[in-house]
């Protein structure tokens, strides 16, 4: 077991954990944002640089600080390591730069995009983005492409995180899409628009941190904050059948995997559950999902208020009468 301090909070983790995973065990504001790292996908992480942290002390044996900021998603912890995330001004400044780079080619078409409201890049730019842009150059533009009959690809919005490529490679037997070209002009593509018809290809939508890959059956149907996310399940021969059903009244508008607080799905679900079962009779509704109070999805969703109880009545006052 290694002892590691993140933002002055001491935690004991097992050998081999990364800084990001250790921070997630603490939870709260300490957790660095991650755009490309995905726990369920092997080989993810290290690309977007938004999880940069400062290592003020390398380890108990070698207390020198690391010379540069490190990507917390791919740096394993050392015993006695001291990490600074929110407490370091250098990290915050660097993250601002990272967000600026991620947004260089992003069209910022959130009013049109179906991902708005549950988009990691949106959260990140709210936290660290600038109001203005330094670039004068035109943003790269691609036409909107259908990847198969169920998924729409907006290459303009892509931030090259590779999550979808890894998901396709690791969840399905044969991936039909990948990255073409290099650097700025890099592009997700299927070779000559080969249809992606694997049973688990829909998970590309869930792992995409931005709105580059979106559900074609939900395209422009509604906005996420008008819908109620509900836990639902059904018997499925291909996957666990545990999903989030996004409902409006008694109608199911779309089905996604159950995402945890870090935006990662608990279990990957199959295409039949995701795209074909949109009738309420197909599902057993377990109840509403917990939404973060800060999320726009929680707006206009009313919860019953619980009345607080008075613990220490001040001397000389009487308890309020009903």
């Amino acid at each position: 077991m290694f002892k590691i301090t993140i933002d002055n909070i001491l935690i004991e983790v097992e050998e081999g954990t990364t800084i990001l995973q250790a921070a997630r065990m603490i939870g709260g504001k300490v957790v660095p944002p991650a755009m490309c790292y995905y726990t369920g996908l092997k080989g993810s992480g290290g690309k977007c640089r938004s999880c940069l942290v400062k290592v003020a002390k390398g380890s108990a044996k070698d207390p020198r600080p690391m010379p540069k900021l490190v990507a917390s998603c791919s740096t394993p912890v050392q015993d006695g390591m001291v990490v600074e995330n929110t407490t370091s001004a250098e990290v915050q400044e660097a993250r601002k730069g990272v967000v600026e780079f991620l947004l260089i080619n992003h069209p910022l078409d959130c009013p049109v995009c179906d991902q708005a409201g549950e988009c990691d890049l949106q959260d990140l730019s709210y936290g660290f983005g600038m109001e203005e842009t330094n670039t004068r150059e035109p943003r790269r533009e691609y036409p909107v492409v259908d990847i198969g009959p169920l998924i729409k690809l907006h290459m303009n919005r892509c931030i090259h995180c590779y999550r979808c490529v890894l998901a396709a490679e690791q969840l399905t037997k044969k991936r039909a899409h990948g990255m073409l070209y290099r650097g700025d002009t890099m592009e997700i593509s299927t070779f000559i628009q080969t249809a992606i018809d694997n049973d688990f290809s829909g998970n590309m939508i869930d792992v995409c941190p931005v709105g580059a890959l979106t559900d074609k059956t939900f395209r422009f149907k509604s906005r996420v904050w008008f819908l109620n996310p509900m836990n639902a399940h059904r018997e499925c021969s291909k996957c666990s059948g545990k999903v989030t059903a996004w409902m409006f009244g008694n109608e199911i508008y779309r089905i996604t995997g159950r995402k945890d607080q870090f935006g990662e799905v608990e279990e990957f679900i199959c295409n039949e559950c995701r795209f074909e079962k949109k009738d309420i009779n197909d599902w057993v509704i377990d109840g509403p999902r917990k939404i973060k109070r800060q999320s726009v999805i929680s707006s206009n969703h009313y919860e019953e208020l619980k009345k607080g109880s008075i613990i220490h009545p001040i001397e000389g006052t009487t308890e309020p009468q009903e």
């Binding site: 009013p111 049109v112 422009f220 906005r223 904050w225 008008f226 707006s299």
Partner: peptide, 9 residues
């Protein structure tokens, strides 16, 4: 108008 729904929310 692009029907972004921000007015409604």
């Amino acid at each position: 108008c692009t029907a972004c729904g921000l007015c409604a929310v």
